[in-house]
Computed example of a mutant assay.
Amino acid sequence: MSTPASPVRIAVIQFDPQVGTEKRETNLAHVLLLAHQAVEQGANLIVLPELATTGYAFTNREEAFAHAEHVPSGPTMKRFRDFAREHRVYLTVGLVERDDVMLYDTAALVGPDGFIGKYRKAHLWNQEKLWFTPGNLGFPVFDTPIGRIGLLICWDIWFPEAPRLLALQGADIICTLNNWVWTPPPLFDASGQCMASYLTITAAHVNNVFIAAANRIGSDRGERFLGCSLIAGTGGWPISEVASAEEQTILYADVDLMDARSAPIWNSLNDLPRNRRSDLYDSMLGYHLHPLLPR
């Protein structure tokens, strides 16, 4: 296992991609421009939203298929691989993945040396079930020179098993790529935070990991999005501002990812992994695709 480089400057990008094959190049150019701005501010880990170059509001499977590409060999992936190599950064991007006749809502991780790995969304929201296949890669954690990185997508954060399994595998940071949508009110509390913000904060707190959550803004074919992107520290509290529901923004945080490896030890009697009652429930919750790696 590698020792993380320190410090890491995380950048979470919140913007408004639009669906439509004729808009893909515009989306791509815009997000690469924002990523370049993050690089100019010293970022070396950049997190983009779910389906960042295609938009989200497909009308049917055929349209989703028209936006799909192979990962990692597709043309959009090549642009992000080239960007990461040129600027010596790590970057997560959400896109529609085609694998034979299957479509997946996928998060890909690239770095200075090219493609690192991918995660396929496990928990599909609403009409996504009509065109995407549920992810079949489990919850992988990727060991990189800046730390161990886990990936989640949007609704996954509502399922506490998902971030817990990433933490049990030794993740230092979870990058969650989102299209959190407008649901029946109340949507925000008095501080302007949405429920997804609190779920992210809670997941970071109970697993003692950093979480970088990138959401999108705007409206697309009648679907409205929440914004509220944030970066949470290992104690759960945001270490960036929580983004607004309306504004394009880039959030930053400077962290030592190695801090996540000692964070579960609160004091001599409270050590999160060791206090788990694995005599009452399986230590990996029955999960068998990747091994336990205590921090």
Results as ranks from 00 to 15, higher is better:
Gly74Ser: 09
Pro238Phe: 09
Leu293Asn: 14
Ser2Ala: 12
Leu130Ala: 15
Gln37Arg: 15
Gln41Gly: 09
Leu166Ser: 02
Ala84Thr: 11
Pro238Trp: 01
Ser219Asp: 07
Gly94Phe: 03
Pro4Gly: 04
Trp266Phe: 10
Asn275Arg: 11
Tyr104Trp: 05
Ala11Tyr: 02
Asp279Thr: 11
Thr106Phe: 05
Arg224Gly: 11
Ile46Lys: 00
Asn126Tyr: 13
Gly114Phe: 08
Ile149Ser: 04
Arg221Glu: 07
Lys118Gly: 01
Gly222Pro: 02
Phe188Cys: 09
Asp282Ile: 10
Ala11Glu: 04
Gly218Ser: 10
His290Ser: 11
Gly74His: 03
Glu86Thr: 15
Leu280Met: 10
Lys129Gly: 14
Ala167Tyr: 06
Tyr281Arg: 12
Leu45Phe: 15
Tyr90Ala: 05
Thr26Leu: 11
Gln37Met: 14
Ser197Asp: 05
Asn270Val: 15
Trp158Leu: 12
Thr54Leu: 06
Arg224Asn: 13
Glu223Phe: 02
Ile149Arg: 07
Arg85Ser: 14
Leu289Trp: 01
Ala43Arg: 05
Arg61His: 03
Leu166Gln: 07
Gly20Ser: 07
Pro291His: 10
Ile201Trp: 01
Arg148Leu: 07
Ala203Phe: 00
Arg295Glu: 06
Glu128Trp: 01
Thr183Leu: 14
Ile231Asn: 03
Arg88Asn: 15
Trp266His: 15
Glu86Asp: 09
